[in-house]
Design a protein around this nucleic acid. Structure first.
Length: 633
DNA sequence: GGCTGCGAGACTCG
DNA sequence: TCACGAGTCTCGCAGCC
């Protein structure tokens, strides 16, 4: 490898310029180094490139010619002769470069080696150090160690250059592997275009109403304190109040309500109640499900259930969210497309995919979700796929009855309930737009709940009659009857599940509608109970994958198309100023100028409904509000 | 005695 | 066999200095 360190504009122009002068289109590996991971404050330290057997590191931070070099890079990246840019976790590098207004040409293909690794084998680690070791036998140094030598050390230059080189070499190995496994379509048409949405999500973030969050924090402190006193009284637990060094009153309790061990001891020995549920290790369980079984037998239990709800909301959401708010009042979390084996994107620091919904256990002045707001003059718009996974169940199994039920616009959960429980509902009243539908939905609320949470969804997850019987406190025979009625309604679903199991037996893997693969255990010797357990687990995971995975890919495609639509409108005279701010499984949330909120929903609906050509129609539900909670009313 | 790491258990979401 | 896919918090124990 012919390595260079470039420190002057002249050297940069000469080295990169020599590539641009070539006849061929360019495929370039690159990597950026930054001062920190924090988007608002981070600075570009340097950038490295690799092309065939040539590599370089450009020293940027503290460089007197920095502006000239950045200007040159601005032109270099948008040069249309660059066919493909390769990077490991390339969205990170592009996000950093975006801060300096450096963008690739719109026609330039992206190749993220981290995403490629995830498609090639979802079960292996995806970090560059591991991949370089596995595929290239290169032992990469650790960032923390190299950083100690300083930004301008030879060690750091080598480190940066080696990353670009490894990325380029990985591409040379991964590209044929993607082709071999028929994954290039999914990679280039779904995963890579989606990275631009990921960058939008991470750079734009979502605005928080800090005052409201503070108000909710104070309210939660009061609710929890009141509950603690009531629990002490109900459980005959000693407590007293002391004034601390700051002059604040503090409640001292000789008991920890967060300790499951102490709770089990109190409930069984002092309150004399019998806990029936057990944890995986065979200990008595203090979970919500377990406590609900003995609720009503002692006032302490109801208070404890409220306490658990309140402390979870306070400790996991209201309190910690403060520290994630950036100086401009927005939260920018980290989104990842290479963790979930089903291709779903996941979110962390904080995880916005698990924002609590409205609860009916404790009374709070407003929902937590209402702290997520649109700035003045803008609105939040939320667009949901209606029953997305059940629609994919229909598409994947091609069950004509299920497809027809969806096409006719019927409520799938009520339809299942009608069949299983022989409900007296005329067929046409199962249609959501029929005037009598709301009446029947209300009348058979309980049966519909079972249809949804006891039959439809559990069967996608592979739940057995044993599990359903346990959850709904019915006999296994009755649970079996529920399942049989479901399969008599949708016989091809049953056939499809059996075919999936056969596929797993034969090949050890399944492939979804978009070509994504899930590699499960390849052989199942059946001597031990562990083997049998693993086999059935693989069956459940396999079929669930066939439904969950295309839903995730569809969301990525939809989000990408919607982003392209926004980009076009944002550049037009009617500037929408629209940005995607959240992607929550089957839901796309964006922020937009309020005058365009209504009309944009229609355009976005079209993009979401039509992004995949399926025999099953997809429908979208829209919600508009000043805050996120309002979009759900 | 205090710090750190880790597994268990519980809870959040679709 | 006994529900799929995730992240985060607290407790309590083990190991270390």
């Amino acid at each position: 490898m012919n390595r260079k360190v470039l420190k002057t504009l002249n050297e940069v122009e000469h080295w990169l310029g020599s590539f641009l002068a070539m006849e061929t289109n360019l495929i370039i590996g690159f990597d950026t180094e930054t001062t920190s991971l924090d988007y608002l404050t981070q600075e570009l330290v340097g950038i490295s490139f690799c092309f065939n057997t040539n590599s370089c590191y450009i020293d940027i931070i503290d460089n007197p010619e920095k502006e000239g070099i950045l200007d040159f890079l601005r032109n270099f990246f948008k040069y249309k002769k660059i066919d493909m840019l390769i990077g490991h976790n390339i969205s990170y590098d592009l996000k950093v470069l975006g801060k300096y207004n450096i963008y690739p040409h719109p026609d330039c293909k992206l190749f993220c080696t981290q995403t490629a690794a995830h498609l090639i084998n979802e079960n292996l680690p995806k970090n560059l150090t591991f991949l370089a070791g596995k595929y290239l036998s290169i032992n990469l140094k650790s960032w923390n160690k190299v950083k100690m030598y300083g930004w301008h050390s030879q060690e750091f230059y080598n480190y940066g250059t080696e990353d670009a080189e490894s990325t380029y070499k990985l591409f040379q190995i991964q590209y044929p592997l993607l082709k071999l496994q028929n994954l290039t379509d999914l990679f280039f048409n779904v995963e890579m275009p989606f990275l631009k949405v990921k960058i939008d999500l991470e750079t734009h973030g979502i605005l928080i109403d800090k005052e409201k969050l503070d108000e909710l924090k104070q309210e939660m402190i009061k609710i929890i304190s009141d509950l603690k006193i009531k629990m002490c009284e109900a459980g005959d637990i000693e407590y007293w109040v002391e004034t601390n060094l700051m002059g604040q009153k503090e409640m001292i309790i000789s008991f920890n309500f967060n300790s499951s061990q102490q709770l089990v001891n109190l409930i069984t020995n002092k309150l004399n109640l019998e806990i029936k549920e057990q944890t995986d290790n065979g200990n008595p369980s203090t979970s919500e499900k377990s406590l609900k079984q003995i609720n009503g037998q002692h006032p302490f239990i109801d208070l404890l259930l409220q306490y658990k709800k309140a402390t979870k909301l306070s400790n996991a959401f209201v309190e910690p969210f403060h520290k994630f708010i950036d100086s401009d009042g927005r939260i920018r979390c980290s989104w990842q497309n290479t963790i979930a084996v089903t291709g779903r994107i996941i979110c962390s620091n904080p995880n916005l995919l698990q924002l609590p919904r409205k609860n009916d256990l404790i009374e709070i002045p407003y929902e937590f979700r209402s702290c997520f707001i649109a700035p003045k003059g803008k609105k939040i718009v939320s667009m949901d796929y209606v029953g997305q996974e059940l629609c994919w169940l229909a598409e994947v199994t091609q069950d004509q009855n299920l497809i027809n039920t969806i096409k006719e616009g019927k409520d799938l959960h009520l339809t299942t309930a009608k069949t299983v429980f022989n409900l007296d509902i005329p067929d046409e009243c199962l249609k959501i737009n029929h005037p009598d539908y709301p009446m029947f939905k209300k009348k058979y609320k309980k049966q519909r709940h079972i249809g949804k949470n006891g039959i439809n969804f559990p069967l996608i997850y592979g739940k057995s009659s044993y599990g359903i019987a346990k959850d709904f406190n019915i006999t296994e025979e009755e649970a079996k009857r529920w399942i049989d009625s479901f399969f008599s309604l949708y016989p091809d679903v049953k056939k499809s599940i059996a075919a999936c199991h056969k596929q797993i037996d034969e090949t050890g893997e399944v492939t979804d509608w978009f070509g994504r693969k899930r590699r499960l255990l390849s052989d199942f010797p059946t001597e031990t109970s562990t083997d049998i357990s693993n086999k059935y687990r693989a069956y459940r995971q396999g079929f669930n994958f066939l439904v969950q995975s295309p839903s995730a890919s569809q969301m990525k495609l939809a989000a990408t198309n919607v982003k392209n639509l926004f980009d076009a409108w944002n550049k037009s005279n009617d500037n929408w100023e629209a940005k995607t701010i959240l992607m929550i499984y089957d839901e796309l949330v964006y922020e937009i100028n309020e005058e365009y909120a209504e009309v944009s929903a229609d355009f976005v609906r079209d993009e979401m409904e039509d992004c995949v050509k399926t025999s099953v129609p997809f429908t979208i539900e829209a919600g508009i509000g000043q805050n996120y909670a309002e979009t759900k009313i």
